[in-house]
Design a binder for these strands. Sequence first.
RNA 1: GUGGCCGUAGCUCAGUUCGGUAGAGCACCGGGUUGUGAUCCCGGCUGUCGCGGGUUCAAAUCCCGUCGGUCACCCCA
Length: 407
Amino acid sequence: MSLRAPKGTDDILPPHSRVWRRLLSTWESMAEAYGYDLIMVPFFESTEVFNRGVGESTEVVQKQMYTFEDKKGRSLTLRPEGTAGVVRAFIQAGAQGVMKVAYSGAMFRYEQPQAGRRRQFYQVGLEYLGTDAADADAEVIELGYRYLTATGVPDVTVQLNSLGDDECRPTYIEALRAWLEERRGLLCQDSLRTLEMNPMRVLDCKVCAGVVADAPSPIDYLCEACQTHLSEVRSRLDSAGVPYRLAPRLVRGLDYYTRTAFEYVGSALDAAQTAVGGGGRYDGLAELLGGPPVPGVGLALGVDRIALSVPDAVDPALDVFVVNTDRYRAEARALLSTLRATGIRSDGLPDQRSLKAQFKAADRRGAVAVIVVGDEWESGQVVAKRLDDGSQVVIGSEEIVTWLKSL
RNA sequence: GUGGCCGUAGCUCAGUUCGGUAGAGCACCGGGUUGUGAUCCCGGCUGUCGCGGGUUCAAAUCCCGUCGGUCACCCCA
């Protein structure tokens, strides 16, 4: 047996990779349109970044991290999510003013793989740092929603909740803890454990969903500032035309969230995983990482799951395929260079094959048209053929670009 | 971490019940048409039957072990 990609990792090959290319380029242009600059941060960080940032009580930190020591004995971890590293970078750079940044790339979590859940998976994400204004929350939620809609994810719904802040959350946590303590006997083993560390995450347990259905929601305990914040986020979403549903039980799996928490749910066809993305506000995160107080809000979307939910690309991959008869090899190569220099997506075969083989290759590659360089070249002409309806014309070689653009 | 299903050609799989020459479709290559794809016809290539051991005259098939894949639970993207 030859070597295989490690468990839970995927090769993303053509033609399927064309979907990925579209998802990533759409992300870049949309993030840019909303004013987000590119940020690149390391794929691995000091383990502390995630222990402190993501939270010791989380599933991610307890069971799912790829942690290793480098040759000097430093504990490093492949990033299981993007936010902690970006906030670390902002602090390290001085934490001045406001920063709006977008990124994309691989994340790593040690889990049993299944459809839509891989050990190396890909997220696109963004962070809006340095403001606690509700406009920022709404903007982030809106961008994610528009992106998912634009890329063709069916039936996207936004679930929204507020988890409160330092002011009101302690009161809520105590109320929740007391409520859960009274029902200890009804909770599963896992929940009994998380009850000690982080009672709010018991709401996330599917096994106990029936028990906690009537549990107090953070939304009922919000202080006035948090109430105002939530209602501002909601009214911004309303005026932006972003549909959402309040989800009082939504708490998410990472400890750093304050106030706004949200999730995008889609109807992924073959996968049990319906969450295609999520995010929230994390006003306390920078301080957890040892920095000054820096408010922020962000989101992450799972590219693997989006790719599972959208139809495969059917657009042609090439504008033109250049073929030639035996004597005109050099001329065909020169023509190819010229076409490529003008930005036309063009290709040809790397070796001289029969015309039949060349046409077959053109068809397989998804070309819109074929240009034949043959005897007509002597009078400055080529044969130009459309592959969709089979029609062809003889045109002057200088008219090729015009002809292609008319298709 | 736990459970179900599955490992045979590049891909999807049949063949395993009841041991007896390793198969089909698709894909790929060539030809029909030495200047035309997608359709049609003809031909060709492709295998450590996941791996190791056992039983047997004989194992893809039966037995034991092992590795891998996949789906699902938990949780998340």
